[in-house]
Computed example of a mutant assay.
Amino acid sequence: MLDKFPTAIVEADDYGWIPLHYAAYLGNVKVVELFLKKNSSLAYIMDKEGMSALHISAKKGHVGVMRTLIRNCPETCELLDNKGRTALHVAVETGKKNAVEILLKELAFQDLINEQDEEGNTPLHLAAINGSYTILLMLADDRRVDKWAMNEEGMNAADIIQLDNRLLSCEKDVLMSKWNRDNILLSLERVVRQTTKVQTHETEGLEEFHETQGMVRNTTPKDNTSPKDNPGRDTPIAKFNITAMTIFTTVTFAAAFQVPGGYEDSGLAILRKNKHFRTFLIFDCLAFGTSAAVMCIHFAITIFPEVKYPRLSRYAEMLQVPLVEFSIFWMIVAFYGGVQAVLDENDPSNLASWATFYLVISILVPLFFIFCCTMYTVKF
C-alpha cells in the first residue's frame, strides 16, 4: 500500500504533521512499524512546534509506539522541540507516568535525563512546576536525576516544591526526605549567600573572603536531616512505632489469657461478672487490635512500593500515629480495669482509690513536665 504513494508519506499538512505523526498520536503501533520499515528517516521529521513522532507519542502516553520508535531509531531521543525539550520533558509535563517510566529505562535516554530546556528546566523541574506528585517521587528516587540543578530563575526543584500550595504538607515532607537522604538539599538563600561571598573575595580582598567563609561555616547546619523533614519508614519514629507495637501486642495478648483473678476449674474467669473485669477485657481487646493494626500497616508499607502506590503509603504512614496513641490509651484503661477488678472497693484501707491515684499521677506528672519544657522553649 505504501509503495503506491511514496511521496505521500512525507507530505506535511498545515500543522507540519506527516502520516507518521498521526499514527503516533493515535497509538497505532502496526502502522508506525510500517512507516519506519518503508522509511526510517520519517522519525526525524518535526512538525511546526518542533515535535517529532516520539514527542507526540510521549505526550499521549502511547508506550508501544515509543518503544517502536526508540528501537528502530534510537537517535530520536536526542531530538528537541522548539522549546528545547526532549520527549521526557513532554511526558513529565503532561503527567504521563508510564511514558516517563519507559524513557527512564531506555539506554538511549541515559544521558538526557537531566537535559535542560530553553528556560533551564530539567524534567524534575517540570514535575515540580506541574505538581505531579507521583512523577516527582519517581524522579526523586532515581539516583541519576540531578536534584541540585538550577533553572534560569536560579531555582532547583526543592525550591519550587516548597512554594507550591497544591501539594499537601505530608507530600512535601516525603519529597523533602528524598533530598535529605542524598544530602543535596540546599535552599536558594544559601546558594545565593555562598555565591555572594565568592564575589566579595574577588573584589574586596583575601582577608575579607576568609572572614566571610568562617561565617558560612558557623551558620551552616552540621546535619541537614531532621525528623520533621524525614518522616520516612527508616526514621527513629518509624522504628519506635513498630517496636512499641510489637511489645503492646505481646503484652495485651498475654493479658487476655492471664486474666486478673485467675480461672475456675471449668476454665472460666472467676471475675467474669465483675464490672471492672469487663472494662479490663474490652479495652485490652481494643489495645491488642490497634497495636496489631499498626503492625499490619507497617508490613503493608514494605510490601507495596511507595513509587507505585504513593497515596496508600502516605495515608498508611499518617494512620500509624493516631493508632499508636489509641493503643496506649486503651492499654492504660485496661490496666486500670484489671487493677480495680482484683481489689475490694469496700476495703477500709482504700487501696483501690490509692491505686487509681498513683496511676493518674504517674501519667500526668511526666506530661506536665513536657508541657512546661515546651512552653519554656517557645517563650525563650
Rank of each mutant, 00 (worst) to 15 (best):
L2P: 05
T7M: 13
W17Y: 08
W17R: 07
P19R: 07
K30W: 04
L34E: 15
L36C: 05
S41P: 04
L54D: 02
H55M: 02
I56P: 00
V65K: 02
R67V: 05
C77S: 07
L79T: 03
N82W: 04
G84W: 04
G84V: 01
T86S: 01
K96Q: 11
L107Y: 06
L107Q: 14
F109I: 06
N121R: 03
L136S: 03
E153R: 14
Q162S: 13
D164H: 08
M176A: 05
S177Y: 00
N180K: 08
N180Q: 10
R181C: 12
Q194D: 11
E202S: 09
A238D: 06
T250Y: 05
F257S: 15
Y263Q: 01
G267K: 00
L268I: 13
H276Q: 07
R278T: 10
R278Y: 09
L281G: 05
T290D: 11
I297D: 04
T302I: 14
T302R: 15
R311V: 15
R311E: 15
L312Q: 12
Y315H: 10
V321S: 13
V333G: 02
A334R: 01
F335S: 11
S353A: 13
Y358Q: 10
L367G: 10
C372Q: 12
M375H: 12
F380P: 08
